[in-house]
């Protein structure tokens, strides 16, 4: 049996006013899988991702990374888990594309030449090698997203946590981003993607987890949880359960 690369056990988050943001969330992600988390606004998906990388401290529960508690060493855990925020602008830290990609390696103390090589490779992987010298403020929405991804890849992340990465992207933007994600998954990386847009990427998913009010409503393969989708406050695409593998924005 394959060991989960990332697992949460009984994760609880209680807000100051007593509301539960996460209510005993136990879930595991297998290596090299493409996992989609879907649910209505405020159902706890983003909060869950923040917990996974230690930006928020749980009231109860444990996060296991490769079987060991992630909170033992958050710096190490964050190198293995790349987190993309909902707002692409909020994750751009430098004025030019190459400088931004260099931020992670530099702060890991990697020598400049090697850091530049890593940064350039990540930019090339994300289709931004021709824009290395450009100002980040001149990038389009889709390019900013890909720059965010390049930034986390420079750290060697094997798990990618993506918070609504398709928001505001046009068809070519979604297509380009999705292609990169699928390539990264093929290379063995684990993808955990939060989205409302099931029609854009469901075909590529290994599992679909539906959230409702801080709890997991259902989890399994898309056809297993198909009937529960509307209960999670998510639009169920207008295709039959048996046709979920057609749900992608990548051209056939």
């Amino acid at each position: 049996m394959t060991t989960p690369v990332l697992e949460t056990v009984g994760l609880v988050h209680t807000f100051d006013d007593g509301r539960r943001g996460l209510d005993h969330v136990s879930i595991s992600f297998l290596p090299g899988t493409f996992n989609i988390l879907a649910g209505a606004n405020g159902s706890g998906k983003t909060l869950f991702l923040r917990h996974l990388v230690g930006l928020t401290v749980p009231t109860e529960g444990t996060i296991l990374l490769n079987g060991a508690p992630a909170n033992k060493n958050w710096n190490l855990a964050r190198q293995q888990m790349g987190f993309l925020f909902q707002d692409a602008d909020a994750q751009i830290l430098e004025a030019t594309v190459l400088e931004d990609a260099l931020f992670g390696p530099r702060h890991q103390g990697i020598p400049h030449e090697k850091a530049e090589k890593i940064a350039k490779e990540s930019l090339a992987l994300c289709g931004l090698d021709h824009r290395e010298e450009d100002l980040t403020s001149l990038l389009s929405g889709g390019e900013k997203r890909r720059l965010n991804l390049a930034g986390v890849l420079t750290l060697g992340a094997s798990i990618l946590l993506l918070d609504e990465p398709f928001n505001g992207l046009d068809q070519p933007g979604v297509e380009a981003f999705l292609r990169i994600l699928i390539d990264l998954q093929r290379q063995g990386r684990t993808i955990v993607l939060v989205t409302h847009d099931l029609e854009k990427c469901l075909a590529h998913s290994s599992s679909l987890t539906l959230w409702h009010e801080g709890r997991i409503l259902a989890t399994g393969s898309p056809d297993q949880v198909w009937d529960e989708i509307p209960r999670a406050g998510v639009h169920r695409p207008c295709v039959g359960r048996e046709n979920w593998k057609e749900l992608t924005w990548l051209p056939r």
Partner: peptide, 11 residues
């Protein structure tokens, strides 16, 4: 958010 992004990228 910028502070968190920097933390996540090794700062």
């Amino acid at each position: 958010a910028l502070r968190e992004a920097a933390l996540l990228r090794g700062w």
